[in-house]
Amino acid sequence: MAAGGDHGSPDSYRSPLASRYASPEMCFVFSDRYKFRTWRQLWLWLAEAEQTLGLPITDEQIQEMKSNLENIDFKMAAEEEKRLRHDVMAHVHTFGHCCPKAAGIIHLGATSCYVGDNTDLIILRNALDLLLPKLARVISRLADFAKERASLPTLGFTHFQPAQLTTVGKRCCLWIQDLCMDLQNLKRVRDDLRFRGVKGTTGTQASFLQLFEGDDHKVEQLDKMVTEKAGFKRAFIITGQTYTRKVDIEVLSVLASLGASVHKICTDIRLLANLKEMEEPFEKQQIGSSAMPYKRNPMRSERCCSLARHLMTLVMDPLQTASVQWFERTLDDSANRRICLAEAFLTADTILNTLQNISEGLVVYPKVIERRIRQELPFMATENIIMAMVKAGGSRQDCHEKIRVLSQQAASVVKQEGGDNDLIERIQVDAYFSPIHSQLDHLLDPSSFTGRASQQVQRFLEEEVYPLLKPYESVMKVKAELCL
Rank of each mutant, 00 (worst) to 15 (best):
A2N: 15
G4Y: 15
G5W: 11
S15K: 08
P16E: 10
L17V: 15
S19G: 15
A22S: 15
S23R: 08
D32Q: 14
L42Y: 01
L42C: 11
L46E: 04
Q51Y: 06
T52L: 09
L55C: 11
P56I: 06
Q61E: 09
I62Y: 05
Q63K: 10
M65R: 01
L69C: 14
N71L: 10
D73Y: 08
K75C: 09
A78S: 13
E81C: 00
M89V: 03
A90Q: 01
H91R: 02
H93R: 14
T94S: 13
T94G: 10
H97E: 12
C98H: 12
A103E: 08
G104L: 10
I105E: 05
I105L: 09
I106C: 05
H107Q: 01
T111W: 01
T111P: 00
D129E: 10
L130N: 15
S140R: 14
F145S: 07
F145K: 04
L152W: 08
T154W: 07
L155C: 02
G169Y: 04
L174C: 11
L174G: 15
W175Y: 06
R188S: 04
L193H: 08
T202Q: 09
S207Y: 05
F208M: 10
L209I: 12
D216K: 08
E220A: 11
L222V: 12
M225P: 02
K229V: 07
K233S: 09
K233I: 11
I238Y: 00
T239S: 13
K246V: 02
V247E: 13
D248S: 02
E250C: 10
S253M: 14
L255T: 10
L272H: 06
P281T: 09
E283M: 15
S290P: 03
M292H: 04
Y294E: 00
R300C: 14
E302G: 04
H310R: 13
D317T: 08
Q325S: 14
W326V: 03
W326I: 10
R337S: 01
R338D: 02
R338C: 05
A342W: 08
F345E: 04
T354Y: 06
I358E: 07
E370G: 11
R371T: 06
P378C: 04
P378T: 04
M380R: 03
G393V: 07
G394W: 07
S395I: 00
D398S: 11
L406I: 15
V413E: 12
G419V: 12
G419N: 10
I424D: 06
R426W: 09
I427C: 06
A431P: 13
S438F: 11
P446W: 08
F460M: 06
E463V: 11
E463S: 08
L468Q: 15
K470M: 13
V478I: 15
K479S: 12
A480N: 15
C483G: 15
